[in-house]
Amino acid sequence: MATPNSPLWEVFIRSRNGLAHKHVGSLHAADATLALQAARDIYTRRGEGLSIWVVPSSAITASDPAEKGMMFEPAESKIYRHPTFYDVPEEVGHM
């Protein structure tokens, strides 16, 4: 039990050219190089990716789910931010 608990890493994979990296899961590794190798073995055994990011989990700051209301309500009440809020006469056609 002399070995310290190894750090946790979050894994992001770009599955195809032109797509964003997407979170796929996490893993433990002593350092970044080992984390990349482990991510290759654990998350891309069937050609799932073209590129991998690993990020120390401790580097992520997350919003608090308990404050979901306060955080996202301002966006929900502003329906005028959506194109469907505005009436355009039919004769004008597609806009």
Binding site: T3, S6, A30, D31, L34
Partner: peptide, 11 residues
């Protein structure tokens, strides 16, 4: 165990 210890020591 030695692999885990070596990886931790190197990091």
């Amino acid at each position: 165990a030695w692999v885990r210890e070596a990886a931790a020591a190197y990091a």
